[in-house]
């Protein structure tokens, strides 16, 4: 009998994570409603749903990535190989990275409809891409690259907005998975990979900004000399590196009992 466990794992993990995603998007929706109520009272404006999710989605995917490691013992206990788990988890995360922005955009349209027709509120114009730091500052730069992601306004170019968000949260997922997998090996490897993860996120942030032709602060990494195409290629290489590292960490790992 031909086994196709990696597809089974991919499907199962996708739906489990999609469930969490609905939970996350639901919570974000409730938060937006509360903020809208406050905005009505204060007579101010409110964020678009897309923008609100945009800020939080990276952290959400990072956490989902960490938890992904804990599917490994579950699958090995069910007789699934590490490679099938790896492929399944990888495929499911690609699916999730595309589906999450797409659903967000749809909810965002509904949100705008509610704002326009029922709450009579205006959507705030935000510019996430304004370079906040003039002085290069290490910690500030790192924190910024975690929170403020390269942003494309969905009203200007929605396919690109989805693609940018997808690429961004996909890397957050990979870094979470990478750190989770490293901690599954042992504590020391875990701590080393936190550093590697931070580097990946920071480099990703700069590369993605150049690739999307967004302003980039001359902080930790200055890569103004790169063309957008080369930067996009750099993002791809970064993804391949993270995926390769995850595979190396999980390839022959012992299952904890």
């Amino acid at each position: 009998m031909r086994h196709n466990n990696s597809l089974k794992v991919a499907t199962d993990m996708f739906f489990v994570k999609l469930n969490w995603t609905f939970g996350f998007l639901g919570v974000m929706f409730v938060i937006q409603l509360v903020r809208a109520m406050i905005a009505i009272l204060k007579n101010s404006e409110v964020d678009s749903y897309f923008n609100a999710v945009f800020v939080a989605a990276g952290i959400f995917m990072f956490v989902v990535g960490i938890i992904s490691t804990y599917f490994l013992p579950y699958y090995v206990e069910h007789g699934v190989t590490r490679i099938d788990y790896f492929r399944g988890a990888f495929l499911s995360s690609i699916g999730l990275s595309i589906v999450l922005p797409a659903i967000t955009l749809i909810i965002s349209i509904v949100w705008k409809f509610i704002l326009d027709n029922f709450l009579k509120l205006n959507i705030k114009d935000v510019d996430f891409n304004t370079v906040v730091e003039d002085e290069p500052e290490l910690i500030g730069g790192i924190v910024q690259s975690f929170i403020i992601n390269p942003y494309i306004d969905p009203t200007s170019n929605w396919p690109l907005a989805i693609a940018a968000l997808a690429a961004n949260i996909f890397i957050f997922y990979l870094v979470g998975w990478l750190i989770g997998a490293a901690f599954y090996r042992n504590l020391l490897t875990g701590f080393v990979f936190i550093l590697i993860g931070v580097v990946i996120i920071t480099v990703k942030d700069s590369l993605l900004r150049v690739a999307l032709e967004l302003p980039l602060s001359d902080g930790i990494i200055t890569i103004d000399q790169f063309s957008p195409t080369i930067s996009a290629l750099g993002v791809l290489l970064l993804i391949i590196l993270a995926v390769w590292l995850i595979r190396q960490l999980t390839k022959r790992v012992s299952i904890k009992m």
């Binding site: 086994h3 466990n5 007789g79 699934v80 490679i83 022959r252």
Partner: peptide, 8 residues
């Protein structure tokens, strides 16, 4: 080890 035909 890592042989799906067997581990299942």
């Amino acid at each position: 080890f890592e042989n799906a035909k067997i581990t299942q």
